[in-house]
């Protein structure tokens, strides 16, 4: 009697069975999906990949005019363009990643109903392709920053800059964790979609994208800092502009909450990835 089997399909998927080894075997596919996203997105556009630059530039200009000039919101003495860009880049990265992952099952049901591969590849590929875009935008920020650093006396960097990859990793992990949880839910409840897009817009204004944390009244400040994006964006600015001390405590809290969210997301996703296909 044969007892050794390469693989096994069971009715109940186990909790915490993430099977990361299998994920590694599909790295070529991941790679290919990222490529597909990047190529297909800019087919038949006039400006092509140039849009990656144009989006944050246009957004920054709009924010500068509306929130800076018209509403007169403080930028903590940082040159407005440099003040808005980190918020715009981090926010766009977060919301693009979230939007790219939270419809995983809805948008790929045709593919998922025909072939097996670890479903996690799809949300991961969305994260990766948005990371590429984000890095390109970061290049834009860096060149502007260097310009100000060399020709003016308006910006002061410090060593926390080295933590930048960590901040961005946190952002990615946050959107992936949330996106995985939401993807399982949107598969079943499509009306969540409308509520989510609305909430996402509100959430932007709950994060220090167009204003500095310093204008938040003291009594709300603690709640405000509980938003994982707040320490990320604020620390980003702290690192490049030395606006104040780095808020270690809030960063650690964010690290903790994002880790918890990502773990929950991965677990739920892996647990439900097959069953979800019956209800999409």
């Amino acid at each position: 009697m044969q007892t050794e089997w390469n693989w096994k399909i069971e009715a109940k998927t186990r909790w915490f069975h993430w099977n990361l080894k299998e994920l590694w075997q599909y790295k070529d596919l991941l790679n290919r999906f990222v490529r597909r996203d990047l190529i297909a997105n800019y087919q038949q556009t006039v400006l092509g990949p140039f849009w990656i630059f144009l989006q944050p530039v246009l957004t920054t200009i709009v924010y500068w005019v509306i929130f800076g000039k018209v509403a007169g919101i403080s930028t903590d003495g940082i040159p407005p363009v440099l003040f808005y860009l980190p918020g715009v880049i981090v926010w766009a990265y977060f919301s693009d990643c979230l939007n790219g992952t939270m419809y995983t099952f809805l948008q790929n049901s045709a593919l998922f109903s025909k072939v097996y591969f670890p479903r996690l590849i799809i949300p991961l590929s969305a994260i990766f392709s948005h990371t590429v875009r984000m890095l390109v935008q970061l290049l834009l920020f860096t060149s502007l920053y260097l310009f100000y650093l060399i020709f003016t006396n308006a910006v002061h960097p410090n060593l926390y800059i080295l933590l930048l990859p960590f901040f961005l990793l946190l952002t990615a992990a946050f959107s992936l964790g949330a996106g995985l949880i939401i993807s399982v839910m949107t598969a079943r409840y499509r009306d969540l979609d409308y509520a989510l897009q609305f909430l996402l817009r509100l959430f932007m204004f709950a994060s220090p994208v167009v204003y500095p944390t310093s204008i938040v009244p003291d009594k709300y400040r603690f709640i405000f800092w509980l938003n994982p994006l707040t320490p990320i964006i604020e620390s980003f600015r702290t690192a490049f502009f030395t606006t104040g001390p780095l808020h270690y405590k809030y960063l650690l809290l964010t690290l903790f909450s994002i880790t918890a969210l990502l773990t929950t997301g991965l677990t739920l996703f892996k647990k439900r990835e097959l069953n979800v296909m019956d209800i999409v």
């Binding site: 399909i9 009715a11 998927t13 109903s113 025909k114 072939v115 097996y116 019956d278």
Partner: peptide, 9 residues
Amino acid sequence: RITAPSYGT
């Protein structure tokens, strides 16, 4: 492995 069985392996 597109869908999971309700019972069985």
